[in-house]
Design a protein around this nucleic acid. Structure first.
Lengths: 338, 338
DNA sequence: GTAATCATTGACACCGGTGACAAGGATCGT
DNA sequence: ACGATCCTTGTCACCGGTGTCAATGATTAC
């Protein structure tokens, strides 16, 4: 310890009168060490306040302790939930979480991602939807030797590299719940085109209708963009129909709430005049009035599992579950039709 | 290039038949280099797809390229805005963003922060509110030699280490707007006790009342916790008063919206029967009906400036502005009292 | 023409850890 | 008592960059 700066492993070694390798063994909890020296060195470490330099470790080990969440998702609650899940997984470990948004509309999108992966060389990345369904990114991860886990609704049994939720099934159940309540004209507000998540959700919706022998009427299917405004628009169109639906399923909560507000602005009571079901279970959904019946999407859990797959030994990645249940949360926005 | 793994500076040096130091000069754009060798080496770098290893760089330079956002803030929109601001500042640079939440209620809070700083040794940290008002953390940053910028409403002219917004003034203006509209009984829903931001906001509110000669009536001051539910409760109490207020200022949007919904549930029309003003300008505030008049808090800008202060040369940190304007956004939730 | 100066480039140690392997001392069996 | 074996510990090179300073060759000054 030269009086300045943080003590290094050399300082500790000198102070404890052992080799730096021995100190290294202590901080790595190597089993081939006598109890006596371990205690001696640990005492010195404590006394000097030595903390190993992660940069040096990263260089020597040729791997660092960074989990990166890569996304192009503007939804705040989603992102924060993901961050929470990852943090739960890495809490207490040496790992840290890096967050990196990308613009998928940029011409340099893939180059940007590649530059990030090659520069930061994170230990592992969690690919968040909707960007996670991009096969090029997966190829990029493979190419750069980056461990990855996709969070996606894609069908895929590569359990080591994906975490998914059974959205289709959950939406089917939600729709069956509407049908069981007596609804037969149910509007759907779709998610953005080309994204995988709304495909699954819509799929579950359609399956339920088909199973109940209810025809799929084009006028009841409305486009959406996962935004509040698109929910407003879609609902406006739906309730303007000659024979409007008695219930609406929106592919996410934000649109569902846009729909609720639009219905109310147009004099419809919820749920007496029209029932609404959403998807996500954002905090908001329990704050609106009436509270929103929705499908709980286990983002936090998915993110936690994704991170666990990344920080554990590679061969154990597939041992964590890859499919987590989305579940129907019944609140106040559904009632039998008048 | 040994056929395996990424090429290193040594591989490039060998291939270009120059010393590794010369390659180092090229990647650092050193001016003392002949144009000829620069081009030759750059060609080899491109051809081999060489990307310098940040870990090694970090070790040699004894500094890394990580900006960490440290927080104990559960508000999703806030966090994402901060992340966006930081990303705007570091886009195109070598820097990356790390996000680290802490639990201020934990007994090991300070130890946790210390462990994070000492292990990751980020190049700089942005301390987010409310944790940013903790002087112990600032001391910790100093002690560990970590560059920091506080995002806070604290009064402080240490321009190199703080980014603030003139919340007090903005709230005063918002309140003056209510007063100018004819309101004289205005309820306040406070923020959590012990936090600095609600102090400023309440301060601006009181200043405006005092300046207008309106007495500060205790029954019109209600506690809050920045949560939707606390807004609900406070509003319930306010409208239950024998002489209820004709307007409410809530210290954040979430409470304001809780208040709006509560008023409506109790048969009050907004803004005809009661006006509401919030603070934050979350996306939500323009989505509710009627849309919420609120104070726009420039989080993205503050975060961007904070990051700029961190990534630039230390002596230039104070040159960036430290005070950014919060501004009143007039929407539909305010009208003169009946 | 030669010394002085400048622009380029290289040699080498170092940042703070780790892995591979060797060495030292204690313990064991015979 | 002796070598074989095991348990601990140390030596040394290396991870992939950077700083310092010296060496080289080209240019300039006189």
């Amino acid at each position: 310890m030269k009086g300045e700066g943080k003590p290094t492993i050399n300082d500790v070694a000198a102070a404890a009168k052992v080799s730096k390798k021995t100190v290294s063994r202590v901080i790595n909890k190597s089993p081939l060490l006598s109890e006596k020296t371990r205690e001696k060195v640990e005492a010195v470490i404590r006394e000097m306040g030595f903390v190993p330099n992660l940069q040096a470790r990263a260089l020597a080990l040729r791997r660092n302790f960074i989990i990166a969440a890569i996304h192009d998702n503007p939804n705040a609650q989603f992102l924060v939930n993901v961050q929470q899940g990852v943090m739960e997984a890495i809490a207490g470990s040496e790992f840290a979480l890096m967050v990196q948004p990308f613009d998928r509309n940029s011409a340099s999108f893939e180059d940007d991602v590649r530059a990030f992966l090659e520069r930061q060389r994170p230990h592992g990345v969690v690919l968040l939807p909707p960007l996670s369904s991009d096969e090029n990114l997966v190829a990029l991860c493979r190419e750069t030797g980056t461990r990855y886990v996709r969070m996606s609704s894609i069908k895929n049994d590569d359990a080591a590299h994906i975490v998914s939720s059974n959205d289709r099934e959950a939406v089917r159940q939600a729709t069956e719940y509407l049908i069981a309540s007596g609804h037969r004209r149910i509007g759907l507000i779709d998610g953005p085109v080309g994204f995988t998540s709304p495909q699954e959700r819509r799929g579950g919706f359609e399956e339920a209708l088909v199973a109940a022998g209810i025809p799929l009427l084009p006028e009841l299917f409305r486009p959406g963009a996962y935004t509040f405004e698109s929910g407003v628009e879609a609902a406006r169109d739906l309730i303007a129909l000659a024979d409007p639906p008695t219930a609406i399923f929106a592919c996410n909560d934000e649109m569902a709430i846009g729909a609720m507000i639009t219905c109310r602005r147009n004099g419809l009571r919820i749920p007496q005049d029209i029932s609404v079901v959403g998807f996500d279970d954002t905090p908001l959904s329990s704050h609106v009035w009436p509270s929103l019946t929705t499908v709980r999407w286990p983002i936090v859990e998915m993110a936690r599992v994704a991170a666990l797959k990344l920080i554990g030994p590679p061969e154990a990645a597939a041992e964590h579950p890859w499919l987590l249940p989305s579940t129907l949360v019944k609140r106040e926005s559904v009632t039998p039709p008048a």
